[in-house]
Each structure stands twice: as structure tokens, then as C-alpha cells.
């Protein structure tokens, strides 16, 4: 299977200043696969995404991206290898209009969606394209944060809590978008609190606890491993 492996994280440790947050994360994502990192608040899921992009403090271990070691590269070089990041806090810029936000991330690969395709996918953003980025509603900001990394041709999407704090109808919409992206062969890492949102989308799940992978669950095992999930996630 290693031929189709897109991302391999091995023995990844990460620090914020003095505090040691990741204690040896190990997981892999295959090309075109959607995996989900589940776990409680503070388990280290967001930090894992940030560490992949070099946004934490010191890191050790290995991050192989498409066969290339990237742990020593600066953030922008990693992104240029085809990584798109949708942060938990959404990261919409107040000093940019909606459309400027959408056009900000530079091209990092071929085959990204065009502006028209994105506006078809998210008609709200077209209506509000001249509004200041942070004047958009929470749901619109989330769509914008997703949309702007689909334009760039990034093949690996790191999506952090995209369903958090949004109305059910918008969560459903984002679920449809992620399903479409899977059809288009994007490789996706979903960090989710919302198990019901992640379960139908993810091909595999990793349970993260104390900065490590505590368990791996295949899609077909979800039913039989309900007890374990309950124990880890408290759902």
C-alpha cells in the first residue's frame, strides 16, 4: 500500500514553548483517502495539523509528504507541496474583502477549482464577495475558509473542526462538499469533535489521546467498536 501513501507521520513530537503537546503521533493517510482524527479537547488533534504545517514550536520525528521529508521545511514550502489548511478559528482576514480572502492563497498545484465553480458551490460567497471578510456570518466564514483552499490545487486538505458551532443546514452543506471532494480524489484529514459528522465521511478514524494515537478504527468496525468509542470520546 505504501505506493499510494500520501502522508506518513511517525513519532511526531511537538512543543509550544516548554510544553510538550504531541508525544509521538503515528499515522498514515493514503492518496484519495479521508481520515478523521477524533478525540477530546486538548488531546492534540489541532496541534497535529499545525505541526504538519510547521506552525507549532519545536518538532521532532518525521513527516513524509508524498515521499518527501518535510519536518525541516518552513511553513510556506510545505504548503507549496500541495497542502491546504482550514484552521479551527477559520482565519478569515478582517483587512481583506470576501473575494480577496478567497483569492489570497497562491496556486500550489494544478486542478484547483475555478472561482466560478466555487461560487456555484457556495452561492452566498458570491453575493457577499465585496463585504469585509469578518463581516460574514459564522457559516459564511466557514465556507470561505474551505473554499479558499480548494482554488489552489492543494491535494491534501487539513480541515479543523469545520462543523463546529454551525447551524445543522450548513453542517449538512459542508458534508456534501466534503463528499464531492472525495469523489474528486482529494486527500483529507478531518479533525472533528462531532462524531456523527465525521463517521459517514471518514474511511478510517484515529482516536487521539494525550498527544498520541490511542486506536485506529476502520469504517466497517464502527458498529462493533461502539463501546470503545464511547469510552474515548464520551459520546
Amino acid at each position: 500500500m505504501s505506493a499510494t501513501e500520501f502522508l506518513r507521520v511517525s513519532d511526531l513530537h511537538a512543543f509550544y514553548g516548554e510544553s510538550h503537546v504531541l508525544h509521538g503521533m503515528d499515522f498514515t493517510v493514503r492518496r484519495g483517502e479521508c481520515i478523521s482524527l477524533l478525540g477530546r479537547n486538548g488531546a492534540g488533534r489541532t496541534t497535529t495539523l499545525r505541526a504538519i504545517l510547521g506552525l507549532t514550536g519545536r518538532r521532532t520525528g518525521s513527516i513524509m509528504l508524498n515521499g518527501r521529508e518535510v519536518i525541516n521545511l518552513p511553513s510556506h514550502r510545505i504548503a507549496q507541496l500541495g497542502v491546504g489548511y482550514c484552521p479551527e478559528e477559520r482565519g478569515i482576514y478582517a483587512s481583506l474583502s470576501c473575494e480577496e480572502n478567497l483569492l489570497l492563497p497562491p496556486q500550489v498545484g494544478s486542478g484547483g477549482l475555478s472561482l466560478d465553480e466555487l461560487y456555484d458551490m457556495f452561492p452566498n460567497l458570491k453575493e457577499r464577495r465585496n463585504s469585509q471578510g469578518t463581516r460574514l456570518s459564522g457559516g459564511e466564514q466557514q465556507m470561505l475558509a474551505m473554499a479558499r483552499i480548494l482554488r489552489t490545487g492543494a491535494k491534501l486538505l487539513l480541515l479543523d473542526e469545520v462543523s463546529e458551532g454551525l447551524a445543522p443546514v450548513i453542517v449538512q452543506k459542508l458534508g456534501e462538499v466534503i463528499r464531492k471532494l472525495k469523489e474528486r480524489d482529494y486527500t483529507i484529514i478531518l479533525v472533528e469533535q462531532n462524531f456523527r459528522f465525521a463517521a459517514p465521511l471518514a474511511d478510517r478514524m484515529y482516536i487521539v489521546e494525550h498527544g498520541q494515537v490511542a486506536a485506529e478504527i476502520q469504517r466497517h468496525e464502527i458498529a462493533e467498536k461502539q463501546e470503545m468509542l464511547k469510552e474515548y470520546l464520551g459520546v
Binding site: S75, H76, S95, L96, P105, P106
Partner: peptide, 20 residues
């Protein structure tokens, strides 16, 4: 727009592939 973005949130802007 790159400049304004990098002024507002340099780390995220760099994580989009811009050489901040």
C-alpha cells in the same frame, strides 16, 4: 492583499504558501 494578510496573521499567511 498578501501584505495586508501577512500583517494581520503572518503564520497563517505563511501556511498558505506565501513567503512571509
Amino acid at each position: 492583499a498578501y501584505l495586508r494578510a501577512a500583517t494581520e496573521n503572518p503564520k497563517l499567511t505563511q501556511a498558505f504558501g506565501i513567503n512571509v
